[in-house]
Design a protein around this nucleic acid. Sequence first.
DNA 1: AATGAATGAGCCTTCATTCAT
DNA 2: AATGAATGAAGGCTCATTCAT
Lengths: 216, 216, 216, 216
Amino acid sequence: MNDGSFTVKGFLEVKKDKPKYKQIIDAAVVVIAENGYHQSQVSKIAKQAGVADGTIYLYFKNKESILISLFEEKMGHFTEKIREEIKGNKTSIEKLLKLIETHFLLLSEDYNLAIVTQLELRQTNLDLRLKINEVLKEYLHIIDSILIEGVQSGEFDPILNIRIARKMIFGTIDEVLTHWVMSGHKQSLVDKARDVHHLLIRGCGYRQEDSRLLEQ
Amino acid sequence: MNDGSFTVKGFLEVKKDKPKYKQIIDAAVVVIAENGYHQSQVSKIAKQAGVADGTIYLYFKNKESILISLFEEKMGHFTEKIREEIKGNKTSIEKLLKLIETHFLLLSEDYNLAIVTQLELRQTNLDLRLKINEVLKEYLHIIDSILIEGVQSGEFDPILNIRIARKMIFGTIDEVLTHWVMSGHKQSLVDKARDVHHLLIRGCGYRQEDSRLLEQ
Amino acid sequence: MNDGSFTVKGFLEVKKDKPKYKQIIDAAVVVIAENGYHQSQVSKIAKQAGVADGTIYLYFKNKESILISLFEEKMGHFTEKIREEIKGNKTSIEKLLKLIETHFLLLSEDYNLAIVTQLELRQTNLDLRLKINEVLKEYLHIIDSILIEGVQSGEFDPILNIRIARKMIFGTIDEVLTHWVMSGHKQSLVDKARDVHHLLIRGCGYRQEDSRLLEQ
Amino acid sequence: MNDGSFTVKGFLEVKKDKPKYKQIIDAAVVVIAENGYHQSQVSKIAKQAGVADGTIYLYFKNKESILISLFEEKMGHFTEKIREEIKGNKTSIEKLLKLIETHFLLLSEDYNLAIVTQLELRQTNLDLRLKINEVLKEYLHIIDSILIEGVQSGEFDPILNIRIARKMIFGTIDEVLTHWVMSGHKQSLVDKARDVHHLLIRGCGYRQEDSRLLEQ
DNA sequence: AATGAATGAGCCTTCATTCAT
DNA sequence: AATGAATGAAGGCTCATTCAT
């Protein structure tokens, strides 16, 4: 449940800042990407992290919590980065493009992480996946707020079904990513961002000829 | 011994049609849906199927092949049913709606199967998932042919990126399904079909006001 | 215990003469030689024999009894053949040479059988090996009678320890055979017979210069 | 993890010298002697050794490697002991006697080990037996060097076929031992050594009346 | 006599986790 | 804080044998 990190209010946050906590998470990404989830024993992760097996359990409650923390840590960085990137953009159209591009870019830059999040982490049991979904909510909230803003600004269909639209956006991005990872990341992912964006905003009711916000 | 073997005995007799083969697959669906993939031991499946453990291995090479056959069998039925259903429809718009509705309907009618395909089968190792993807190709081909037809008929964007559109359609349907299964299938899935369809065809460039094919 | 053969006194012996009984034993030799004892399942032997699995059990009580019968049948032929061959020889020296030569010749002519008796049949459990030893006694009796005769005729040491000498003769022949089989029967086995014989009779106290019985 | 690994900790520390490694091997000898090879499950060996099942696999790669190590360890001790014992003897005749006596004595003192090496270890598959043969080579080399020395010193036949003689010596010793074990070690094994030796050296061409080296 | 589909007992090995040091 | 040796539960698969046809 808890990833093993302790925060002392009013005092200094202790574990997450320590190198070893991140060491282990980064080791997990490498080991899982290289060996696959089912071949990523705790001892392998410990070895890669340069610590003893037992040390893992000083920082994480159990193996599952390494994965949850991994996802929290990386996805947290994701949402943070995406929030930053879309901040400067005026329209929802632009924000959505930035979201897709940033998502694609971040995974392009870390193919190991892409393997882990798109393929390996899905081989885990339902409990873990439910917790991962918790973490994903933050990301879905960003999509939702872009959609709501877009509806209010008139960029999108005024009667857009936000929940379905959110699933379309997330599902499409996810499907594109998974395909890209599975086919061995031969093609440029970032290059696909505009095409994906194009279809998605049109699906949300945006009409290119009506408003030229995106035009360059 | 192996699934997929054919015996001619007076008439064409496919082993797959023999009761025990299907018995085991149906048992697997029930057991996996109820216990989760990692808690679905071969002995449990055998018990549910009403056969001895060893009997499983007369019909399947190993545990993994039960799952592949399960997917082939069920997905085969899916694509077959979908092909049938879309046959009678004239426009691509209508065909896509029929595809979504049929997909939703079939999983609505068999919630256990929905759990298995949307959640449990994804917890398997990469090898199995690659084989499952092989099976999925058939489904993706149907989507592709609808899209190509729609582009040719002028219903969809003449410069539609088919590969991305296919991923949008599949990714969206998949995301909607997974969410529906994970949230405990409280809401009607089939009711969502029109909304999903609406967003997807718009994403593909369809303009409601231009052509009224779908109108009732 | 019983090999499954039935003899009706005064009437015709039934099973052993029937082709299927021998068919199965011969199939066992081939299958065991080709696959090794632990990979020689009953079903494989049945297939090689051209009968159904269940048919095996009409002729043999269980798998073990196939092996015992195999050994009895083949070893019986051995001792019979050896008895025949040594009958015509006058001296014990000559008889022992004939025994060795015949043993070597028979296994040279049937390498599969050599593999089975020298290597594979020894991988069986102790019970079976005790029964095989029973069968071997006949062979050891022949050695004994040659030795006793040789002592009486003055060819061998008058105070020869027969039991030890028997073990020397059998142990040496066995060791030469096993080495020949394990090293892939590249060299001629029969060519070694005279050298083996030479050492063994000398060990038994025979003195070439004293009597010239063997000279040509 | 693996047997045969070396760790330097202040001094030369061989893993094989660690108590647990030997504990397990000794437990294996007891369990196999008492239950037979095919009834000697890893769990039984672990229980006898007083360790957990999994601990076995910290010291041995798999079950088979317990047996190989067992043989290496015990046979290594054998050859070492035999080399020591024959060192002090002048003639080949004496050395061979010492070899036989030592071999017989060592197995007389450890009947469990005798059961394992003479009966149970032979029930293993061919692969394992080939590895065991590797270990046996050391023993055969000792025999060879005694023979060569004996030929050079004139004790043995100057044109002695060393390879056959070696097989005679080893085959005879082995046959005597196996018979002794199978018949329940009722008789004294060491008492047989002189008789066995007597036959073997005579087989190698030694003539008692010519040289009186062995006489007391 | 012959078949062959069905049975079900039995075991090696892995690996997350603990705890004495 | 750190170590890493030790633990022990848990399951997929094989194959000799049976028996209804």
